[in-house]
Simulated scan of single mutants.
Amino acid sequence: MSRPYAEVIGDPIAQSKSPAIHGFWLGKLGIEADYRACHVLGDGLADYLAARRADPDWCGCNVTMPHKQAVILHLYSAEEPARSIGAVNTIYPAYDRLLAGQNTDVPGFLEPLRAELEKKHYFRMARILGTGGAARAIVTALAADGFTLVLAGRNPDKARAMLDELAPAKESGGGEHHAVDLAHFAQPTDFAFDDREGCLDLVVNASPLGMRGQPPLAFDWSHAPPGAIAYDIVTDPLETEFLTNARAAGHRTIDGLNMLIGQAAVAFEYFFGQPAPREHDAELRRILSS
């Protein structure tokens, strides 16, 4: 007997925690459905989506690296904010099973920052490390919340182009944004930061660097203002060297499970038509961290 199902696609995909998250919620709600992981190569995206659209049991999929931008070409529509961001992480069959794309990374990323963002600040600045699909969502989200951005990538020209596309300073409400080489943050600095009272500073690793199987992320915490919050979107390992060093330097930290669970909750409702049971977050975090 067939069962409804959703899945996560990417290359690689074995490390994904999404099946555990969605499976946990399905169990808590007693929904008779499955959530799977599917390894899809870049040249297989079109065939994958065509086959799934024709499958009446398929409820949609999450999209992870490296397909968040490439997948847009194969969709009937990309909804806001996915269209503006230029990256999709959630696909679902809409009317007549035409495939629609959404980006739930934005609400997922912002969720653990809500208490801070509700406060008034004299100045907000974020140093964002990485220029991939997740970084596009984070740049868009923080620019809309009035942050001045410093975007660092291995290709500063790509970082500059991304800022010009996604976060024009006059429209974002922040100051002039800056693009720098990622290597800029690798060596210590003796820069004397001004008074940060009443300011909100973030340092966000939006890259796969530091992930298991990837090169380490070289970031010297002398580049972070006092009181800055360190936020790493990497989930494997959960306790990254980036976060360990940030904590040792006296900074508050946010790990990747916050964004992962937050974005998954929005996607879950697209797939299965019910809100995720977030009252069980503490239990879910224990499972994912074990």
Rank of each mutant, 00 (worst) to 15 (best):
Y35T: 11
A20S: 09
L41P: 05
Y231H: 04
L75S: 03
A78R: 07
L243Y: 02
L202G: 01
L217G: 03
S16L: 12
S84I: 15
G30I: 11
L75Q: 05
G108Y: 12
A179K: 07
L75E: 06
G101E: 12
N258W: 07
A54H: 03
R124A: 06
C61D: 01
T104G: 04
E165L: 13
Q102E: 09
K68C: 12
D105A: 06
L243R: 02
H74S: 10
P216F: 08
V180D: 01
H121C: 14
P93V: 04
F219L: 09
H184P: 00
D43M: 13
A126K: 04
H178M: 14
A33M: 14
A249Q: 08
N245M: 11
G262R: 05
H22Y: 05
L110V: 11
H67M: 08
D281Q: 03
G173D: 09
L260A: 08
P112T: 09
A152K: 00
K17S: 13
L26M: 07
D281V: 15
E269H: 10
I287Y: 00
P19R: 04
P93S: 03
T240M: 04
Y5D: 02
Q102L: 10
T148I: 13
V203I: 15
H223T: 03
L98Q: 13
H223G: 01
L142F: 10
R285E: 03
L45Y: 01
I85K: 06
L288E: 04
V63L: 05
E239Y: 01
G153S: 15
I254A: 01
G101S: 10
R278G: 12
N258H: 11
D164R: 08
N245K: 12
H184S: 08
E269C: 13
L163P: 08
A115C: 09
T253V: 15
M1H: 02
E241A: 10
E80H: 08
V106G: 01
Y48F: 14
D232W: 06
Y95F: 07
H177S: 04
M125S: 13
A20N: 02
V8P: 00
L202T: 06
S222T: 15
M1S: 12
G101N: 08
S289A: 14
Q263V: 13
V8S: 04
R196E: 12
